[in-house]
Design a protein around this nucleic acid. Structure first.
Lengths: 291, 291
DNA sequence: GACAGACGGAAATATACGTTCTAGTATTTA
DNA sequence: TAAATACTAGAACGTATATTTCCGTCTGTC
């Protein structure tokens, strides 16, 4: 008795998963992550994308009590049409609710509102960040001997992410916290070849502002991620990203700064890969001369 | 030059319709009425349903400048997969508004790609989270005597944000880290009236998984924010948010989980405000009786 | 270290599919 | 009314697809 709809299928996969072989588990993950592909692709194509042989896909279907791959595929196709009708309904609802004003059906309106907000913020992000400053920041990061990341309170998650992701690039990265109030002392130890990334939004936390100023005085480049050109971080910043945080919105989110952070990391990674490649292509003498 | 999307196809059919033969007109009507069938069925099946021969379907496709039936079918499949229209629209709007602004071209393509990615993830977020589980989570959070938030590595920023934002609601919130390896000991102290929010994505960090399992065994409600129904957090979760992380995308971001986190916080805030109001409206005696 | 069992990969096979071709029919025009 | 053109039905063809089977390999166990 195989599954008859997508939810049942998900359930079935979850149940069978522990008893599956490694390869079949891999397929299970793939299948749940990209259901659209399973609905429309051919066995060969899907198997290729999943990095297995077509026969493995059939074995997977059999493990779920289907007679064959095609039989399982029907479930995914069913899901696709079902979902598409619900989309249409939702879009209709949205149109109507728009017409009526703000009076939405209500249940998942909070959810929707938050998502809308986030999308708007992302749009704004793209407008405000210029390629010039962005690449300047990337060059700075890629050339730094060490990177220090500093933020507090609301902005702290951004710093967390940056510290984690940059260190994944094998860049020496330190997440500064003010545990024990040692921040001032620590900042004093930062060298001019290093970089500080300071993140802060209103109300700007004094510690971060002060540390940034201190670094600036000492000739350490400062990349600031903040919300306005009037931010107290601005005077200390070598490069400042001002993600105009619209205070008219009820709840400010971290979506935009985090997205920017990710972009910085990814681009820095690319940049590093590029320069590494170049160096490798260069003869040894030139390399030495450059260094 | 055949159509490249469903809207264009509709347009093309409308234009060609008058010049078509009777049978082809019949097919045109059929096709516009049941596009889902066109997307998934075989020529034979569709032709059968339309009461014509398979070759007629091919002729129809040819009349629309397609090389064959399959080529036309791709359009219908595309329509089926096409994500929520409203997001598409918004992305388009963004693109246009940018074109008018700084027409930089390819320089900040990384930036744009990241933003597009993020928007797609947000769209998926809205799909996957149901109002039911969302509100269950909110009720759980609003009713908890204390809230513990746990995450590591990549997911840690989410936990950070949750801890910060929930504590702003004057909920007693603790951010668990495994500093000093005291995690197990700490988890042992959590009471059943409290709640654990566990956040983890692949590769799932063992500490978080284990802590969640431990809580679950001890009867502590666990809200899991993770990426798939196959997550090891799932079995321990009272409520699990599975934000299907599409591994086909090059870089996974935290945008979706953070947005969800914010939604949870905001809704919990509303919920608390609502219940407070109710209590205030109640006469004192009733209030006592209830407690 | 050897054997049993399961697992995965690749090719072979049979099926089903889309496409094309041809013969026949209807429709329109001279 | 006859001829010519356009259109359709049906079958046949070649291709691509899902499935199965077999053999090599790896793992876990005795």
């Amino acid at each position: 008795m195989p599954a008859t709809n997508y939810d049942e299928l998900k359930q079935a996969i979850t149940v069978c998963f522990p008893a599956m072989s490694k390869q079949l588990q891999g397929i299970a993950r793939f299948v749940l992550e990209r259901p659209d592909e399973l609905a429309l692709g051919t066995v060969a194509a899907i198997a290729g994308a999943a990095g297995v042989q077509p026969s493995a896909m059939v074995r997977f279907a059999n493990a779920l009590d289907f007679g064959g791959f095609s039989e399982m595929q029907q479930i995914f196709r069913g899901r696709l049409v079902e979902r598409s009708v619900s989309y249409r309904e939702r879009i209709e609802q949205m149109r109507q609710s728009k017409r009526n004003g703000a009076g939405t059906g209500g249940q998942d309106s909070v959810l929707h509102q938050s998502v809308s907000n986030a999308i708007a913020e992302l749009g704004q992000l793209e407008e405000t960040v210029t390629a010039k400053q962005f690449h300047a920041a990337v060059r700075l990061l890629a050339g730094a001997t060490q990177i220090h990341v500093l933020a507090q309170r609301r902005a702290f998650p951004v710093a967390c992410y940056l510290a984690y992701a940059l260190s994944q690039l094998e860049l020496r990265t330190h997440l500064l916290d003010s545990v024990g109030g040692m921040l001032t002392e620590f900042v004093r130890g930062i060298a001019p070849r290093e970089v500080l990334i300071a993140v802060s939004f209103r109300n700007y936390s004094a510690g971060v502002v002060e540390a940034a100023a201190q670094c600036h005085r000492r000739g350490v480049p400062v990349i600031a991620i903040t919300d306005s050109p009037l931010s107290p971080l601005k005077p200390s910043a070598t490069i400042a990203f001002e993600l105009g945080d619209d205070s008219s919105r009820p709840f400010r989110s971290l979506v935009a700064p985090l997205c920017l952070a990710q972009e910085l990391v990814v681009s820095t990674g690319h940049h590093l890969a590029g320069t590494l490649e170049k160096r490798r292509a260069m003869p040894a003498r030139t390399r030495k001369a450059r260094a």
